[in-house]
Nucleic acid binder design. Structure first.
Lengths: 110, 110
DNA sequence: TATATATATCGTAATATTGCTATATAAAAA
DNA sequence: TTTTTATATAGCAATATTACGATATATATA
């Protein structure tokens, strides 16, 4: 098929998957890393930073935005982008659970 | 195309993307959550836990294993799965950087 | 050894993703 | 108002992913 059976999973599981999937591309990792470095910048800077055509970058930005991982605001002629806490806070809890688990389990692994 | 230009990104960016992408499916989130809950279990338990056919689950397990997020060891007739610290440790640093950034930036966002 | 049980692989259909060129839109500057 | 600059969208080709039934493999038990 190629179609994910989202209806059989919980909202939380689907939401976490959407967030992780959005992060799961090297171009989008690069965008996030760049925004960490410069705090905020206009779209054009990201286009210059990446080895991809402008429409492709625009598409990646859209996906990050839809997932709630970045925000974009008009700033004169261009659009200023920065990280969106909301999205990252949602995944934070998941990885904290993983870490707590990994720290607490001693040699109970198979 | 449909082909990611991995050669234009750093090894770290590609590695992080592979890990996030592996997590980016509700079935694989469900598998990880189940392993957190029960510490370790055999493949069949996961098949029973998920609303997917056995070959589909097997495929998801393979992807998590290839990404280094779970480990599987023979245990008699069946295979025992548990989380693999290695993979999760690799993403940990990335999210720590994100969190540090989000905490430190005040209203410097656009 | 033969059979049962557990898991993986093959092959395939449906759908999604990636990346591009061409083009549209929208704000700013001339 | 026209032009420039910045970003988004449409449309498309190549490739990847998801899911399944059928089947292979591999260990354990009888």
């Amino acid at each position: 098929m190629g179609i994910t059976k989202t209806e059989h999973f919980t909202d939380e599981q689907n939401e976490l998957a959407i967030l992780a999937k959005a992060i799961g591309h090297p171009a989008r990792i690069a965008i996030i890393q760049h925004l960490i470095k410069v705090n905020s910048c206009v779209c054009g800077d990201i286009v210059n930073e990446l080895p991809l055509a402008q429409p492709t970058v625009s598409q990646h930005l859209k996906e990050l935005k839809n997932a709630g991982l970045i925000k974009g605001n008009f700033e004169g002629n261009s659009i200023c982008y920065c990280l969106n806490e909301e999205g990252f806070n949602k995944i934070k809890g998941f990885f904290q659970q993983v870490n707590t688990h990994l720290e607490n389990r001693k040699n109970q692994c198979c």
